[in-house]
Simulated scan of single mutants.
Amino acid sequence: MNSMVMNGDIISNWEGRHERLFGNEVVRLNHRLRESGMFTREAIGRLIERCPARELGIESMDTDTNNKERLYGVLGDASGLQALEAIEKGRIWMNIRRVMDWAPEYRRLLDDIFSEFQGRMPGFETFKRNMGVLVSSPDANVYYHADIQGQSLWQIEGVKRVYLYPRSEVFVAGSHVEKILLRETDENMPYEPWFDDYATVVDLQPGEMVTWPLYAPHRVHNHDCLNISVTMEHWTKDIWNSYAVHYGNGVLRRTLGVDNPSTKPSGLHVYPKAASAFLWKKMGRQIKGDVIKRRDFKLDPHASAGRSPIA
């Protein structure tokens, strides 16, 4: 079944106020993706088996909750449904990346979703859209981090508790955003437990989605159940301008020692900063690729933790 057979709106409770809130505040909406038949366990199993190896990310956390080191895995000999069985037993995340590039029916669904948003928000023009599928274990955590493009999280199965923090220098310093953009670090950032006092907390149920402001930090804790979720990313002109400004600021800070440069995503200063970002990349100064290439385990539905070590 594909998105073309879905009747009616994909977002079922849109109101006029959401046009003003979208991208500026935390917005929680109801969706009908489960009715497409494209995100059942059987469909996800088939998707795992179709996924090119380069687009299948598998990670795990240490059993010591004080150790935030990531372990990196491979599918091994497991079938798609066996992979789900392994993940349900362990503390594992699977990220099925860029599904729209190699599964045309998901490209159609992604286009349908953004066409619906565009119809409801005149002037909302997006590019570089992306869709991924996340499968994660009961009680799994995603640590405090920020993303560099427009983001939304769509829940299919299970429940996630999502902590969404204010976008301010207190919670995400501009200098750290620059490090993420220049690939000097991953998305994880310094976190203090008292940050939670200022968080918006959402228990995301199946059939719900949530989106939040650009660069707003967040972290996630799964309830005690397997979670299947869909992530969507997009760029707009304003998001690209913000990227160019922060990237350019990072270049200026590293080359000319400029401190506290403007981060406004509009104005004449955007263009020279965009040019400096382009030149920095052209000169090969940006760090490329994943920081870590090792593989620590393979999925194993017969193992108690859902994984077996790789020698």
Rank of each mutant, 00 (worst) to 15 (best):
M1D: 07
N7C: 05
N7D: 14
G8C: 05
I10F: 09
W14A: 11
E19N: 10
L21Q: 15
V26T: 12
L29R: 03
R32E: 12
S36D: 02
S36C: 08
E42K: 13
A43V: 00
A43D: 04
G45N: 07
R50V: 00
E55S: 11
E55C: 09
E55T: 09
L56A: 00
I58Y: 06
S60E: 09
M61S: 14
T63Y: 11
D64G: 02
D64P: 08
L71D: 03
Y72V: 01
G76T: 07
L81S: 13
I87G: 10
K89E: 08
G90P: 02
I92Y: 02
W93A: 01
I96F: 11
R97M: 11
V99W: 08
V99P: 03
D101R: 13
W102Y: 15
W102I: 04
A103T: 04
D111F: 03
I113W: 02
I113F: 14
S115D: 15
S115K: 10
F117C: 06
G119P: 02
R120S: 03
M121L: 04
F124I: 03
E125P: 00
M131N: 00
V133L: 02
V133A: 05
S136F: 01
S137Y: 07
S137H: 06
D139C: 08
V142M: 14
Y144K: 07
Y144N: 05
I148M: 07
Q155G: 09
G158P: 06
K160T: 05
L164Q: 07
H176C: 07
I180V: 15
T185G: 05
N188Y: 15
Y191T: 02
E192F: 09
P193V: 07
P193H: 05
W194F: 12
F195W: 08
D196G: 04
Y198K: 05
A199S: 14
V202K: 01
L204R: 03
P206M: 05
G207E: 03
W212L: 12
L214C: 06
A216F: 02
A216G: 14
P217E: 06
R219P: 01
H221E: 14
H223R: 12
H223I: 00
H223W: 04
L226A: 04
N227I: 12
T231N: 15
D238K: 14
I239K: 06
W240G: 14
N241S: 15
H246D: 01
V251N: 01
V251E: 00
L252P: 00
R254G: 04
D259Y: 09
S262I: 12
S262H: 04
P265Y: 10
S266P: 00
G267I: 10
L268H: 01
S276Q: 06
M283W: 12
G284N: 08
R285I: 02
I287G: 04
K293W: 06
R294G: 12
F297H: 10
K298H: 14
D300V: 03
P301W: 11
A303I: 07
A303Q: 13
A305F: 10
G306M: 09
S308V: 09
P309E: 08
